[in-house]
Every structure is written in C-alpha cells, then in structure tokens.
C-alpha cells in the first residue's frame, strides 16, 4: 500500500517548494497543525500525515513488532520521504514526534535540512540525576486513563468530542477521529512513547535543530527542553510565553514567529 494512503498524507503549497513535514504527537492527529502549517504553505511544500493508528491512517498498517519501538515510527517517516522523494526536509515534530524525527534523521541525515522540536522529551521517566517529570507508575496510571476513556467511546460510539455548531468552519474537515486512536494501538503507542529512552540518540543528530519550549509544560518541562538543546550538538532553544504542551494550538502566532526565522534562514542559521 502507498505510504500516502497508509499515513493519510496531505500535501499543500508549491510543488517545487522546500519540503516541510509536520508530525503530530501522542494523542491527536495532523489537525493539530491547522493553525500553524498554513502559514508556511506559501513558500514551502507542506506535508502533513497521521501516525499509524491515529486520525485517518490505515489501521492495517499497524504492525505490533515494527511499532514496538519508536524506530518503527521513524521508519514510517522515512517511508513517506522516500515515496514522495522528499529531500532537504524541514521536519517539525511535536512531543514524541520530535524524537521520531531525531531517529529518522540519525538513520538518513542527508534527507534533512532542519529539525524543529516542539515540546520534545527524550525520556519521560525520572532516572537518577535526570528529571523527566514522571515515575513509571504514572505511565501505568495513564494507561488506566486511556482505558477509562476508550471504554466509553468504543462501547457507546458516542462522540466524546463535539464539533461546535457556532463555529462551522471547524467542523467540516474535522472528523470524529480527532484525538481518537484504536484502543489497543493507543495503549501500545503510550507505552512506546513514555517508556522509551531516546537520550543516547540525541548526540548523533547532525542537522541544525531548534527546540521550541513552552513555559509550564507538564509533559516536557523546561529542564527537559534544555537537556535536549545541550545534548544535540549546535542546537538552540526558544522559550515561548505559551503555556501547556500544545503551543501550536494555544499560541499559534507565537509558535509560527518562533519557527519562521529558523526555517527560512540559511543552513545553521
């Protein structure tokens, strides 16, 4: 099957523009980029996709063995780059997809021009002197949360998330799949996301990297963003005033501004 179908790839912007690939994080799908991606579609070839199991991806593409590690998801990204023949790629990854992008970059550095990591964390679990922000039992608690919520969703098929009749412009292309994932896949993906230790990979990243760090991010605290900046040679970090884990939703303008200079500047700019 085509990667474009498997991962629900959508492409916009000029065909000869520099490719800019946006990867959503754990929890939702490519619609997370709805306020940010269009700002780059004038001069970039903007590529959006859904991680396998999320949004409009093809569930049959999920392979419990391949997707038991983040490398499997990184290989999915590379599959998309190969199929669309994308080179000189600006890769924007949110949350776990920042690490997925790092793994893809380490595997095929020649394909990448720049990495933007929004709220990255190479490891969520505390480890001796490293503070990831969570204990292992917190992750089990998360799996419980997922289970409680998917139970209601799958059993009753009731839309847990309503579209807003007052803002019809939001409704049309946003299907009820937003923030939904097959429960079994979501559980495995939560494990892979939150129990992976990607710290050793960071030093191997050679592409110019920008870390976008929010104030007060529960999932990826400032110290973790700083760790990523320190670990990736030559990377830099911009701290946003935006709070929370999803600045591309809560403060899109600030996020766009922080990214623009970096992605439009020269190599290593």
């Amino acid at each position: 099957m085509d990667a474009a179908v498997k991962f629900n790839v959508t492409v916009s912007g000029p065909a000869d523009g520099q490719p800019m690939v946006f990867a959503h994080g754990f929890g939702c799908d490519q619609h997370m980029w709805r306020h940010v991606a269009p700002a780059f579609a004038d001069d970039f070839r903007v590529v959006l996709f859904d991680l396998v199991g999320a949004g409009g991806s093809d569930l049959s593409a999920y392979d419990p063995v391949r997707h038991a590690t983040l490398q499997g998801y990184a290989d999915d990204v590379l599959e998309i780059l190969h199929e669309l023949d994308l080179r000189d790629v600006v890769f924007v990854g949110h949350s776990v997809s920042a690490m997925i992008g790092a793994l893809a970059e380490v595997a095929e550095p020649d394909r990448f021009a720049k990495l933007v990591m929004v709220g990255p964390s190479p490891r969520y679990i505390d480890d001796t002197s490293y503070v990831g922000g969570f204990a292992e039992e917190d992750i089990l608690d998360l799996l419980d949360s997922l289970e409680s919520n998917y139970l209601g969703w799958s059993a009753a098929m009731a839309p847990a998330i309503m579209s807003n009749p007052d803002r019809p412009e939001l409704g049309e292309e946003l299907t009820e799949s937003f923030c939904r994932m097959d429960p079994a896949v979501a559980r495995q993906f939560a494990r892979v996301t939150f129990l992976t230790d990607a710290r050793p990979e960071l030093a191997r990243v050679t592409t110019p990297t920008l870390v976008l760090q929010c104030t007060d991010d529960l999932i990826a605290p400032v110290a973790v963003g700083a760790y990523v900046r320190d670990a990736i040679p030559g990377s830099r970090m911009t701290t946003l005033e935006a709070t929370g884990h999803c600045p591309h939703l809560s403060a899109p303008d600030e996020t766009i501004a922080a990214m623009a200079a970096f992605v439009r500047g020269g190599p290593g700019e």
Binding site: G25, D138, I161, M162, L174, F178, C179, I219
Partner: peptide
C-alpha cells in the same frame, strides 16, 4: 493524577481548543 495529567495535556486540552467543547 499524573497519568490523568498526561491524558489532559495530550487529548483533552487539544480537543477542547479545536472543538471548543
């Protein structure tokens, strides 16, 4: 709970911001 916080940040908050509900 800590797990609930992750769920809140990764599912609930984005969905609320997208759908207003």
């Amino acid at each position: 709970t800590p797990g609930g916080r992750i769920y809140h940040e990764t599912h609930y908050a984005p969905a609320l911001k997208i759908h207003d509900s």
